[in-house]
Each structure stands twice: as C-alpha cells, then as structure tokens.
Amino acid sequence: MKKEQYLGVNVSVMTYDEILDDLRSRISEGKQSTVIAVNPEKVITANKNPLVKELINESTYQIPDGIGMILASKVKGGSLKERVTGVDMMERLLRFAAEEGHGVFFYGAKEEVVSEAKRKLEERFPTLNIAGYENGYTKDNQALVDKINASGAKLLFVALGSPKQELWIKENMKHLNVKVFQGVGGSFDVFSGRTKRAPEFYRRFGLEWLYRLMKEPKRIKRQMNLPKFLIRVLFSR
C-alpha cells in the first residue's frame, strides 16, 4: 500500500474509491482496518507527541484531510491528488455499508447528538443498518465492548476527539469483532445538523479552513500551524 511521509508521519495516497475497494477485500479476508484523518495540525502534534505519531503510522489508512497535505505533496513532488476528508470518508463508508449489508455502530458525542445523527442518517440511507450506538459518556468499557460485539456491526465510528478516539480504538480493537474502525471527531455533530459544513465553494477549493476562520477568528492561532507545517516540509529531507 503506497504511502508518502511528511515530517515522519505517513499519509495514504489512495482515493475514496481505492480505499473502499481495498476495504472490500480486507473485510472478505477477515482483516481489521483503521482509518485516521491527517492534517497539518495533527502532523505537528505528532512531532511533539510520539504516541500520536505511533497511532497515526500504525493505522491502515492515513487519509489526507486538509489542503495542507496536498500542498506538501506538491512541494515535495509527491502523488497526492485529492483531499480525503474524515466526514466525507465516513459518509462514503456509510453508503458502502448500506450497499454491502454491513451493520454499523456509533460511539461518542452527547446523547442528543449521536441519537439525532442516527435518526437523520437512517432517513438519508433507508437500507443502512445502524446496529447500535452509545454516547461518549459511558463509564463501563467492558459493557460497551460487549454491546458492540452483540450488535454484529462490521463498521465502528468513534467520536471522542483526537487522539483519544484513536487510542481507544488501539486499546479495544483486539477485543472487537468489528472490521473497520474510524475516528470521526465532530462528524456526528455534522450529520445531526448541529454543525454546518462550509459551503460547497469553499470545500471544492480546499478553503474550509478560511471559512471556519471567518466564522471563528479566534481559530487564527490554530490556523498558523499550516504555514509552519509547509515551511518545515519545504526544508525537510
């Protein structure tokens, strides 16, 4: 599986369709797979925290979520052609699950958020089997693992924030019958309607960061990670 590396962090070069085709084969072979979104902010964090770097690099698919990853690939002569965002990857996986007849399970976020996301997604994908869900405030982890296994779900979406969600997946996947794991951050908020995505124009040109910055000027400190990241990539070997 071809990957590129930026500041020691792996990034998959596969498109949405290529990932789904590969997952189809891996599920049929009984293999477990993990999906993690990678952006400049997360790469910088990974360079400060070895555990975060390990969680990213051990994943099956490190999807390039953020225009900064595409720009870095261009700077270094790589082959990344398109963003593969976490929320869009989740949507494609849900459609894939509906078409293939795989059950899915949601874990994380507030009760009213995850339950509303479930309701709206069932309306959107009538053949989707959301086999179960649990909010992110449960205290009994073993009961949660048992509930997920009892549901028969093949895909699990975990919304605990990064890197907490990836750490939870790493620690629990060996005890689960799930085949595909994705840490999805605030995606339940998007699908529940609580959070609005940037308009299509901004998404098409990779300018979601600009839209969010205009809505929340206080994000400027976080957005400064993009130029820092590109400068470091430019001068890296």
Rank of each mutant, 00 (worst) to 15 (best):
D146H: 10
I148T: 05
I148M: 10
N149H: 10
A150H: 08
A150Q: 14
G152V: 01
G152K: 04
L155H: 03
F157G: 07
F157E: 02
L160K: 06
L160S: 06
S162P: 02
S162T: 13
P163G: 10
P163H: 03
Q165K: 13
E166H: 12
L167W: 00
L167V: 03
W168C: 07
I169A: 07
K170E: 15
E171T: 02
K174M: 13
K174W: 11
H175N: 15
N177P: 09
N177G: 14
V178L: 10
F181M: 08
F181C: 05
G183D: 08
V184F: 06
S187N: 10
D189Y: 03
V190Y: 01
F191E: 00
S192Y: 06
T195D: 14
T195N: 14
R197F: 00
F201T: 08
Y202T: 05
R203N: 09
R204C: 04
R204G: 01
R204N: 14
F205V: 10
F205P: 08
G206Y: 04
G206V: 02
L210D: 03
R212W: 08
L213N: 04
L213G: 02
M214W: 12
M214I: 14
K215V: 02
K215D: 02
E216H: 14
I220R: 13
Q223S: 07
M224C: 07
P227H: 02
P227G: 01
K228E: 09
K228P: 00
F229R: 13
R232F: 00
V233N: 04
V233Q: 07
